[in-house]
């Protein structure tokens, strides 16, 4: 029954879409966002941000503290503008960290969770909440510390790498074939016009998913039949630093709202 209902809803949505389907998927996403706002008055991503806000301010973990003491790069508890400057080097861990890994760092070091207790279902809403505090600001990542330089170079190499049984990598689709599509899906211009790092984490309306860029990168590899890099490992962090540097100055839309 649920599926029939869903199918009917989709069919009626298709009917609405058929009246005027914008060519550009970016325009289509904007239209879908408007439709959702009109019909329900709130976006699903707003609810995820609220969920993250609760998780952020609640005293949790073995040490019973909130995440207000967490330094996301601009000082403990400073959230505005923090996520548009990530990934960056953190002296306390001696590592370049992205939003996901920094949340995990604070959940383990500040709140006292064990690494295996850090759930994606908590990291993602937290990422949505923190990112939302940088909505509208320009992306501003730096390559200053030696560790940042090293990570940037790693990210660049991985972005252009060809590997696996399908001989592919990020750039094969997201640079060389930007104006084409695979199956019915058009490729975003990750380093150029779309400045993809400016709108992640994002809500994906086509399958009701809340994803951070780490989820997105892992899914890209998965779609290519390529083994996925681990969450919080240097691979997704390096790729994000490379992409974010290309997106510098782009105005952030956080959380993003995408197909």
């Amino acid at each position: 029954m649920r599926w029939t209902g869903l199918a009917l809803l989709l069919l009626s949505l298709l009917g609405v879409l058929a009246q005027s389907v914008p060519e550009d998927p970016r325009d289509e996403a904007k239209r879908q966002k408007q439709l959702l706002l009109q019909t329900s008055g709130i976006l699903p991503s707003d609810l995820i941000v609220e969920q993250g806000k609760d998780l952020f301010y609640t005293k949790r973990g073995p040490r019973g503290v909130s995440l207000e003491g967490c330094d996301f790069g601009l000082g403990a508890g400073v959230l505005q503008g923090a996520s548009v400057q990530l990934p960056r080097y953190f002296a306390d861990t001696g590592k370049v960290e992205d939003l996901d890994s920094r949340i995990r760092t604070c959940m383990t070091q500040l709140q006292g969770f064990k690494p295996e207790e850090v759930k994606r279902s908590e990291v993602v809403p937290l990422a949505f909440f923190i990112a939302a505090q940088s909505d509208g600001l320009p992306i501003q990542v730096r390559i200053a510390a030696p560790a940042e330089r090293e990570m940037y170079e790693l990210g660049q190499k991985l972005f252009y790498a060809r590997s696996g049984a399908r001989d592919m990598g990020c750039a094969t689709c997201h640079v060389s074939y930007v104006n084409r599509r695979s199956g019915v899906l058009p490729f975003s211009d990750v380093l150029g016009k779309d400045a993809s790092m400016s709108h992640w984490p994002a809500y994906r309306y086509s399958n009701d998913q809340a994803w951070t860029m780490e989820d997105r990168i892992r899914a890209c590899y998965g779609n290519l039949g390529h083994p996925q890099p681990d969450f919080y490992s240097p691979v997704p962090i390096a790729l994000q630093l490379f992409m974010a540097y290309q997106a510098n100055q782009a105005k952030a839309e956080l959380p993003g709202f995408l197909r």
Binding site: L158, P227, P229, P234
Partner: peptide, 9 residues
């Protein structure tokens, strides 16, 4: 760095 990204990857 890729060595820490997971064995299969």
């Amino acid at each position: 760095a890729v060595a820490t990204g997971g064995a299969q990857y």
